[in-house]
C-alpha cells in the first residue's frame, strides 16, 4: 500500500506481541480444559448411582455421599431463601429510597467490603456467633455463613440493575397516582426482574461451591437428617476431608463428588451468563 519501505522491525514486533496475546488466550483455554479433563478422568471412575443414593460407609466398603449432597442442597436452599430477599431489599433501599443520599454511598462501600471478604473470615465469624454459644456445629450456622456471602452479591446486582431503570418511568407511574412502593414492586422490579434473577442464580452458583465457611459451622455429618440444629454434611467439606484421607476409595469418592459439584456450579454459571447475554 505504501510506497516507502516497510518497517520490518515494527511489523515483526507487532506480530510477536499479538502472537503472544493469542497464545495467552489459548493457554487460558487450555488450562480450563486440562482441569475439566482431569476432574472428568478421575471423577467418572467412582461416579455411580450409589454415590448419590447411599450413606457413607467405612473406607473399605463403598457406600455413598447421599447426606452430603442433600445437606449441601438444603444449606444452599435455605441460605438463598434468607439471603436473596435481604439482598434484594438492601439493593432496593440503595437504589430507591436512599438514592443520592450520603448514607447509601456509605452502605455501598460497606457492601463492597463485605463482598470482597475472604469466605474463611465469614466462617470464623459465624463460628463465634452461632457455634460456640450453641455448643456445637449446626446447620443454621452454615446457612447464616452462606447467606452472609450471598447478601452483598445480590445487593450489588440489584442496586445496579434498579439504577439502570430510567427515572422517568417512576415519575410516570407516580404521576398516575401510584404510591412509591407500588411503583417499585410493580414497575421497577418488573423491568429488572430477569437481571435480578440472573444475579441470584450466579450468587447461588457462588455459594454452592463454598467450603471454608462451612468447615467451622455446619461441619460434617455421616447421616442426613432434615434438621438444621445438628451438624449438616456438605459435598465440599467432604471433598476436603476425603482428599486428605489415606484411603483410595475415599479419594476416588472425593473426585466423583468434585465432578458433580463442578458440573452443577459451571452449569449455573453458564445459564446465568447466557441469560445476561440474551437480555443484551
Amino acid at each position: 500500500m505504501r510506497t516507502s519501505k516497510p518497517h520490518w522491525g515494527r511489523v515483526w514486533r507487532n506480530r510477536v506481541a499479538l502472537t503472544l496475546a493469542t497464545l495467552s488466550a489459548v493457554f487460558g483455554l487450555a488450562l480450563l480444559f486440562i482441569i475439566l479433563y482431569d476432574i472428568l478422568r478421575h471423577g467418572l471412575s467412582a461416579l455411580s448411582l450409589d454415590l448419590l443414593t447411599k450413606d457413607p460407609a467405612g473406607p473399605m466398603s463403598g457406600g455413598g455421599l447421599k447426606g452430603a449432597f442433600l445437606g449441601q442442597g438444603l444449606l444452599t436452599l435455605v441460605a438463598t431463601l434468607v439471603g436473596a430477599p435481604l439482598g434484594i431489599l438492601a439493593g432496593t433501599y440503595l437504589a430507591e429510597y436512599g438514592r443520592d443520599k450520603k448514607i447509601s454511598k456509605v452502605i455501598l462501600s460497606i457492601c463492597d467490603l463485605a463482598m470482597s471478604l475472604p469466605s474463611i473470615v465469614v466462617g470464623v465469624f459465624v463460628y463465634s456467633l452461632l457455634v460456640k454459644p450453641l455448643g456445637g456445629f449446626n446447620g443454621w450456622a452454615g446457612v447464616v455463613a452462606l447467606a452472609i456471602i450471598m447478601i452483598p452479591l445480590v445487593t450489588r446486582t440489584t442496586e445496579s440493575l434498579l439504577s439502570m431503570v430510567p427515572w422517568t418511568l417512576r415519575e410516570a407511574a407516580l404521576a398516575l397516582g401510584s404510591s412509591y412502593h407500588v411503583v417499585i414492586i410493580k414497575i421497577v422490579y418488573r423491568k429488572a426482574a430477569s437481571g435480578i434473577l440472573t444475579g441470584v442464580l450466579l450468587a447461588i452458583a457462588r455459594v454452592a461451591g463454598e467450603t471454608a465457611p462451612l468447615m467451622f459451622t455446619s461441619f460434617n455429618n455421616n447421616h442426613f437428617e432434615f434438621s438444621l440444629s445438628r451438624p449438616v454434611a456438605s459435598v465440599t467439606v467432604t471433598v476436603f476431608q476425603y482428599a486428605g484421607s489415606p484411603y483410595a476409595t475415599w479419594i476416588d469418592q472425593a473426585w466423583a463428588a468434585a465432578l458433580v459439584v463442578t458440573a452443577v456450579v459451571l452449569f449455573l454459571n453458564i445459564i446465568g451468563r447466557m441469560a445476561v447475554k440474551w437480555r443484551g
Partner: peptide, 23 residues
C-alpha cells in the same frame, strides 16, 4: 472465549485444592 476464561474463576476453590494436590 470470554465465557471459558470466566469459568476458570467459577470452579469452586476446594476443587482447585483437590486438583493441585493430586495432579
Amino acid at each position: 472465549v470470554a465465557l471459558a476464561i470466566e469459568l476458570l474463576a467459577a470452579i469452586p476453590s476446594v476443587i482447585y485444592g483437590l486438583w493441585g494436590l493430586f495432579v
